[in-house]
Nucleic acid binder design. Structure first.
Lengths: 209, 209
DNA sequence: CCAAGCTCTGAACCGTGATTCACTCCTTGC
DNA sequence: GCAAGGAGTGAATCACGGTTCAGAGCTTGG
């Protein structure tokens, strides 16, 4: 044998792969999935089209990975801010909704691409996973609320899905047209909307920004 | 001149056009937009591909019309059941939510195609119109509620959009997998969810199926 | 029945963008 | 330095489905 990858080569390859993935993410964040042709991604990464195929077996795999990593980052944030730590379920839901909305409004093109842009089936199935992920995060909070007696028993999965849908839909319009002007008011409306949806065992929950 | 369309020919042409549109709708209801190639639609309508182009200038126009007609039918139903007629805003919202959910669950493939399937931009823009339509229908009810004093003043457009998103999202899961088994319970959950979202000026609204 | 002009047909065409592959250039171990 | 193979290249190829169009077959008014 006269050739075997050294650690250095391995590192260079990994770096190239990462650069390609990063280029694809940048491309999506700038012009959505529609703009992310293999040619565009390759050029942006500074490699030839063929080289992209050295790291990803197909475009579907590449964009699925891009979607997944961007999605995971966001989901982690929401999961973190809603973590159980002694706060009420209402406070945790409010924190999650606010984080979700603020971050989406801060990166509107990417957020639109992730939430609503037409994509191929491989990415669409990742999107379903993502939505289930958000639903599960909120459902967990609702469950905790039911257990503690703060919330009355209910179909937490469906209510959580509805919360996710409400946030997504209410943001799609503003994200489409670059209207981040009134984002504070929008965020406040969404947070109080989510809170009002909660089946609290007593009067309306209190929350102030 | 030796040829001019008679009324009969006119009728035959109109019938052919309608048959093609119906075939396209059937195809979408059966296998979604992805399955609706010009070839498939033409075959189903019993004509040649070229003949489809005698009635529709492009596929985009054809599918846009299909989407629009199916969407309008549904929107009309919801608009009708939420019409102002002396009932409370809560009752009207409940009726709208119930109609929306029940009808979606009754035709799951079509509903999924209309609400969530990846589609080309021409149809996507129709979808945005549709969503705005639903939002407006619900917003109108909310406005009435505010005016009558039943609801406290709020951002009715955003809340209405959130309601629409909540209904859509909570249905996408069930629509994907053919789980219309527990549809009654699901509908009930959604209706009470929507009601709990309303910023009523006094205690929780009453509603029973 | 005929000429004029329409409608219908479906195989061929075309544009787009993913994918391949013969080739060149590099890395490795001796 | 050099042989053995890996990595990088990008123009050519391929797949796909929408769109076209030349010819066959109808309809119409006279």
């Amino acid at each position: 044998m006269a050739y075997r990858r050294t650690e250095q080569t391995e590192a260079r390859l990994a770096a190239a792969r990462a650069r390609i993935a990063a280029a694809a993410l940048d491309q999506v964040a700038e012009g959505g999935y529609a703009s992310a042709s293999m040619q565009a991604v390759a050029t942006r990464a500074g490699v030839a089209v063929g080289s992209v195929y050295r790291h990803f077996p197909s475009k579907a795999e590449l964009v699925a990975e891009v979607f997944r990593s961007a999605a995971q980052r966001e989901l982690d944030v929401v999961a973190t801010v809603t973590a159980a730590d002694g706060r009420s379920a209402a406070e945790r839901v409010a924190a999650g909704a606010e984080a979700f909305a603020r971050r989406a409004l801060a990166a509107p093109v990417l957020a639109y691409a992730q939430i609503a842009e037409p994509v191929d089936p491989a990415v669409e199935s990742e999107r379903l996973r993502l939505r289930r992920g958000y639903r599960d995060v909120f459902a967990l909070v609702l469950e905790d609320g039911v257990v503690s007696g703060e919330l009355s028993p209910h179909d937490t999965a469906t209510v959580a899905a509805a919360l996710v849908g409400a946030l997504g839909e209410a943001l799609v319009g503003p994200l489409g047209s670059g209207a981040e002007r009134h984002s504070d008011a929008l965020v406040a409306t969404l947070v109080s909307f989510c809170l009002s949806c909660l089946p609290t065992t007593e009067g309306a929950p209190a929350w102030s920004p």
